[in-house]
Simulated scan of single mutants.
Amino acid sequence: MDDILTVRNLKVYYYTRKGVVKAVDDVSFSLKKGETLGLVGESGCGKTTLGMSLLKMPSPPGKIVGGDIVIDGENIVHLKETTLRKRVRWNKISMVFQGAMNSLTPVYTIRKQMLETLQNHREMEYEEALKIIEKYLGYVGLSKDILRRYPHELSGGMKQRVVIATALFLEPKVVIADEPTTALDVVVQAQIINLLKKLKKELGLSFIFITHDLATEAEIADRIMVMYAGKVVEIGENVQIYGSKGPMHPYTKGLLGATPRLRRKVDELAFIPGVPPDLLKPPSGCRFHDRCPVVLDKCRENEPPLKEVELGHLVACWRCYDE
């Protein structure tokens, strides 16, 4: 499969009064056509910052200070804001933001909000735009009757489906889903996951699925990318991370060890001691070395590169290379 998205050495820093926060620091990866890439890690590791930066809209005072973002063969890092709005955002790449209730304006009907988004990106008559909106509402299992409703009249699952439909109706090639099942009950979570799998199959979409829930990623993702303290520490196929051999990086092993399973007792759950490092002053060497149970001396001083240790499996860990 050809790569629809390629990210090379991306750096996104927040310039604060206390100093520079290196939220995304030299991150590289690719996304293939029709693939779902799962992005996981602890809160504050840079997942959402990376997702927002792929649309070239990191939250202020964040700035992209280096690297390339190539979408459908075009590097968008140096494009002007007007060009990005017209040709890239929602046309080539879109995003389902975390918390659907925060993405919808409470004083506008669903019709007004969806029409405004569509007509701001493409010039079309009202009737034509309405037909497109109704088509994509049908894709996500909603009737056109909800268009006259306000957000507070919809359930959490219905609001999430509206946001997904809004992210799709300009037919982008890449969709970023930032924790789309957060704050939903388990039944609705399953419905949303099954919906995304269905849309991927029917529309040939490529997804980046952001979450801290490894169990959810096991269900939906083709490949897994694990971030820690602004760095990518492991990338692998689903079977390489969740299969019998398991992950290779100690951090990924710790995350999986802390994930509840049906046949695992509560007292068998593991945990990762300590807290993530301060990204105002990130530690030397491997950023995980203070919490790592198998740390080597070289880990404290020398940063490990992200290297391919087997076909399609990349790890940033000195112990993995030595072994």
Results as ranks from 00 to 15, higher is better:
234 E>Y: 07
48 T>K: 06
321 Y>M: 14
280 L>A: 06
25 D>Q: 03
297 D>Q: 12
63 K>D: 07
79 L>M: 15
295 V>E: 10
68 D>T: 12
120 N>M: 12
67 G>T: 04
292 C>Q: 08
164 I>L: 09
164 I>S: 05
241 I>F: 02
74 E>G: 01
71 I>C: 07
107 V>I: 14
289 H>D: 12
73 G>P: 07
214 L>C: 05
192 I>V: 11
290 D>L: 13
201 K>M: 14
172 P>I: 03
285 G>Q: 06
305 P>E: 03
51 G>T: 07
220 I>F: 11
171 E>G: 06
144 K>D: 13
241 I>M: 06
164 I>F: 12
39 L>R: 01
321 Y>I: 15
72 D>E: 11
57 M>Q: 10
15 Y>F: 15
307 K>T: 13
284 S>M: 11
23 A>S: 13
244 S>T: 14
269 L>K: 10
257 G>L: 06
300 R>Q: 14
305 P>F: 04
74 E>K: 14
33 K>I: 04
60 P>T: 09
32 K>P: 06
258 A>Q: 02
128 E>S: 11
102 N>A: 13
247 P>C: 06
77 V>S: 02
77 V>Q: 04
146 I>S: 12
238 N>G: 07
13 Y>Q: 07
98 Q>F: 10
229 A>P: 11
154 L>W: 04
117 T>I: 13
38 G>I: 00
266 V>L: 15
199 L>R: 10
94 S>P: 04
309 V>L: 11
149 R>P: 00
54 L>E: 00
193 I>R: 12
61 P>E: 02
124 M>L: 13
169 F>A: 09
159 K>L: 08
290 D>Q: 14
246 G>L: 08
302 N>W: 09
211 T>M: 07
307 K>N: 12
38 G>D: 00
172 P>S: 05
25 D>R: 01
314 L>G: 00
308 E>F: 11
166 T>E: 13
131 K>A: 14
310 E>C: 12
299 C>A: 07
254 G>C: 10
52 M>A: 12
247 P>R: 04
133 I>R: 08
29 F>D: 02
234 E>A: 10
223 R>H: 12
89 R>Q: 09
165 A>P: 08
161 R>Q: 07
41 G>Q: 03
45 C>K: 06
285 G>I: 10
54 L>M: 09
5 L>D: 02
248 M>V: 15
9 N>P: 05
213 D>A: 03
158 M>G: 05
67 G>E: 05
160 Q>S: 10
318 W>K: 07
237 E>N: 15
293 P>V: 01
126 Y>I: 10
60 P>N: 09
203 L>S: 03
49 T>K: 09
94 S>K: 03
323 E>V: 15
153 E>W: 13
182 T>H: 01
170 L>S: 03
86 K>R: 15
92 K>P: 04
170 L>H: 13
262 L>H: 07
16 T>Y: 02
313 H>S: 02
254 G>Q: 06
216 T>A: 12
4 I>S: 02
156 G>D: 04
92 K>Y: 03
220 I>K: 14
279 L>H: 09
268 E>R: 04
69 I>T: 05
47 K>N: 08
302 N>H: 11
226 V>N: 08
136 Y>R: 11
109 T>P: 05
104 L>N: 08
188 V>S: 08
172 P>F: 01
165 A>E: 10
34 G>Q: 01
99 G>Y: 06
307 K>M: 14
304 P>Q: 06
321 Y>C: 07
168 L>K: 04
176 I>S: 04
274 G>Y: 10
236 G>Q: 05
105 T>S: 14
73 G>L: 05
158 M>I: 08
